[in-house]
């Protein structure tokens, strides 16, 4: 099977999920072509020189020297037209979410996103906020897939060699209607979640802003840092630099203590590297329990006060 893997330039290096996408592609087919677009195209191609690939196509054109959805979608369309791959694969990154649906609509090829495993035309994707999985199949021979983070491991990349080939695209300014500015980072705040040993993380299960001070009491008693899931930050109950997940911080403490967090994949990618995971959730089927070492099934609003009490008794004895 002919597979095209579209690579992603992550500020000058190859995106981790692009390597994972290649590892996944190698399990699905024999002839794999990778595509590198933009000012760092040959740099990205070099990074794959030791990997078993048919070839790496490089596209350099001033209209796609840095990422923009209009240009990328058109480049990928032209390559699909010229090379007729059966599978088009990319990591399920924010950039893929931005342009890949455009490719799908342009070429009339279904795009199955967020795939965690694949075999023989049947693809498993996350649904219902990671609570269930769905097996999806397509009616066409050609399919676009994006692989969720860690669906495949780059440790399984098959070594070998590959050559690179420049690919000429036809782009004109009328095709690129948007003006994309340089990426930037915002104030990182003054908490150091990355080196914290113990993190207590608050999810929507906290229910009300008024309940948050209780968690700070617990954190003080334990000497822990505090982080949060996205809805808690969205509600304005916590600073955005405390958000853990794909849009926020990636943490790996000795213990990640989650309170009322369901365990959606976009949260989990930010904390699954924690040495130990202890979670309180009142739903015994919460996906967070699948990755937890300790699963406390119960109401955090009852358990936290008891835990603070128990800590105090302990200190006084």
């Amino acid at each position: 099977m002919d597979i095209l893997v579209v690579l992603e330039d992550n500020h000058g290096s190859l995106h981790r999920m692009s390597r994972e996408a290649i590892a996944g592609a190698q399990q699905l087919g024999e002839s794999i072509t990778a595509l590198a677009i933009g000012q760092h195209a040959s740099l990205l191609a070099d990074k794959l020189s030791g990997v078993d690939l048919a070839e790496v196509l490089t596209v350099s054109h001033e209209l796609v020297s840095s990422y923009n959805a209009d240009g990328y979608a058109e480049v990928v369309r032209q390559i699909i037209e010229a090379e007729s791959p059966q599978l088009i694969i990319a990591g399920h990154t924010y950039q893929t979410r931005d342009y890949m649906p455009r490719v799908s609509a342009k070429c009339d090829i279904p795009f199955i996103p967020d795939v965690i495993s694949a075999e023989d035309g049947s693809y498993v994707k996350l649904v219902l906020n990671s609570k269930l999985n769905a097996t999806v199949s397509a009616s066409s021979d050609t399919v676009i897939l994006s692989f969720q983070s860690a669906a495949y491991s780059d440790e399984d990349l098959v070594p070998g060699s590959c050559a690179s080939r420049p690919f000429e695209v036809n782009l004109d300014t009328a095709m690129v209607r948007s003006e994309t500015e340089e990426p930037f980072q915002e104030d990182a705040g003054d908490v150091d979640l990355e080196s914290a040993e113990l993190i207590i993380s608050i999810g929507r299960g906290i229910e009300k802003e008024e309940n948050i001070p209780m968690v700070f009491d617990l954190a003080n008693a334990l000497g822990a840092e505090i982080s949060a899931s996205r809805p808690v930050v969205d509600s304005g109950w916590m600073e955005s630099f405390r958000q853990v997940g794909s849009s926020g911080q990636t943490v790996a403490p000795k213990l990640y203590f989650s309170l009322g967090i369901s365990g959606a994949i976009q949260h989990v990618v930010g904390m699954k590297g924690s040495k130990n995971i202890l979670s309180i959730n009142k739903d015994p089927d919460a996906p967070i329990f699948e990755i937890s070492d300790y699963a406390v099934v119960g109401d955090l609003l009852e358990i936290i006060p008891k835990l603070i009490e128990a800590l105090q008794t302990e200190k006084n004895s």
Binding site: A134, T135, V136, S137, A138, S292, Y294
Partner: peptide
């Protein structure tokens, strides 16, 4: 162009207390 054939509850191998 695409259809859900089956949904299921994810299985884990992790040992959880």
């Amino acid at each position: 162009t695409q259809t859900i054939k089956k949904v299921f509850v994810p299985q884990t191998t992790k040992k959880t207390e």
